[in-house]
Amino acid sequence: MAYSDKVVDHYENPRNVGTLDKSSESVGTGLVGAPECGDVMRLQIRVNPETHVIEDAKFKTFGCGSAIASSSLATEWVKGKTIAEALTITNTDIVKELALPPVKIHCSVLAEDAIRAAIGDWKKKNHVTEEVGVAVAAAH
């Protein structure tokens, strides 16, 4: 199967590979998996407690090229966004950007799940319960 240029680029030069301190209050960690292919993806975000802006994002993915590219792109996209804005990213956006073929759509689903899981973990740690995602999404 032929990967798109963008997938190859992210695969060969993955952005933001690495680890953030899991125990830090300001770090949210999402660990998700796609049972279809046995991939595992960990995405972490560091959030500014005042502004709720995602100041840093790191990932580590064990899986195919599309899964690596999807998570690499996801970290690029969430950086600089607020929590609320990051929640508006959908797997369809990732599919479009990377021109993923239908058989690789689950990789983009995984990346969206990872973003949500990381944000969910951060919210839980910081006792943020309000639905910040909806208000900002509506204002777009």
Partner: peptide, 25 residues
């Protein structure tokens, strides 16, 4: 399986409720 996973992500997106991962944590 794949369709179900995608559908669950869409539910999480609209409701804000965390998606339950099929594989145990």
């Amino acid at each position: 399986l794949e369709e179900q996973s995608k559908a669950a992500t869409e539910v999480a997106r609209t409701t804000g409720v965390a998606k339950k991962q099929i594989v145990p944590p």
